[in-house]
Write a protein that binds this DNA or RNA. Structure first.
Lengths: 180, 180
DNA sequence: GGTAACATGTAAGATGTTACATGATTTT
DNA sequence: AAAATCATGTAACATCTTACATGTTACC
């Protein structure tokens, strides 16, 4: 069985929603997957094209008056199959963490203690902003369609973000105290 | 001020330890930074070379009998400065998460509930293995040199891993329950 | 005799980011 | 008049992974 990259799977998943153009996909990701998955136009457009050549999607060009043309993408049966097969596959990586704060902290004996403290303080503030974003995402999901069978799963991913971010904030506080 | 990539900063940091060759660096990272920073030989060797051409390190070739030649790298004053400047800089990204489990979960209405449960169960098991690794890393740090001024910071990074992983495990348990 | 540990490296390919390019309409 | 929104895309570059290539010694 052929394998595709993660970007492809993300696109296949999003196409099961009513999200059809590159532009819409980018927006949806920025609004609801952004906390655990990012994607740029430089990935979206070439990969959408590839979906079509691989037979995973079809495309229809729609002219709109007053607005630019839209290229609407639709999953094929094969595309849906590939998505479901991927879901059923075991995980490849658990987490692909690359944490810049921890990298800096690891070498922090080479800087004064107060500099390390402000590093952690800054990090804590960013994490608190993240918590605020989660609130905004939750509201967006609820406004969108809370009865949708998708919504339940989306809220689970949010809960993950909240719990782990909260744990990280607590770690920040504890570590700032220890450094004092 | 010129900027370098993260791999370069990681190498500069490691060269402040008594870790001098590409091989040793790889080992150290696999043993103690691995939970938040990974690196491959394909990054290490070319980047070490670049450190020298950029004037951040010098290299001495040592012949050993019975063993292959070692190329030992040493930080220059400029190298130490670049490291310290980077430590003092504000963070570029908070976290660069790309979480495959969450990506799958986000689209999990396209698979049966029991498949999603086993996805989470598998994830939970992997997280528990991670907790075990933290224990092993802690022992390694304590055996190495617990009095070292570095060790304190290393333990902080470990604590981060433990706290956030524990939170993730709790989330797994709660979410598996909810899906039932 | 085989494998693990020691040791250095390259080449190809996959993947991702950033900046640029275009252009209409709508809102401020 | 300027900026934001809608909409599509590319090219250059940065970065990372994987597989391959090479060779010795020590241990089982």
């Amino acid at each position: 069985m052929k394998t595709y990259n993660h970007t492809t799977y993300a696109l296949l998943g999003i196409l099961t929603l009513d999200c059809r153009t590159g532009y819409e996909i980018k927006q949806l990701i920025d609004q609801s997957l952004n906390h655990f998955w990012k994607i740029s136009y430089g990935q979206i457009y070439p990969n959408l094209k590839k979906l079509v050549t691989d037979g995973l999607a079809t495309v229809k060009v729609k002219s709109q008056d007053g607005k630019p043309d839209r290229k609407e993408y639709f999953l094929t049966t094969k595309g849906k199959e590939v998505l479901q097969n991927w879901l059923a596959e075991p995980l490849q990586q658990i987490t692909d963490e690359r944490n810049e704060v921890l990298l800096k902290l690891f070498f922090s004996r080479h800087q004064p203690a107060d500099q390390t403290q402000s590093l952690l303080l800054h990090y804590k503030e960013e994490l608190q902003k993240k918590i605020d974003t989660y609130k905004a995402i939750e509201e967006m999901i609820m406004n969108w369609n809370p009865q949708s069978p998708d919504a339940t799963y989306w809220l689970y991913t949010l809960d993950y973000g909240r719990r782990t971010t909260r744990a990280a904030i607590e770690w920040c506080e504890a570590t700032i105290e220890k450094i004092k």
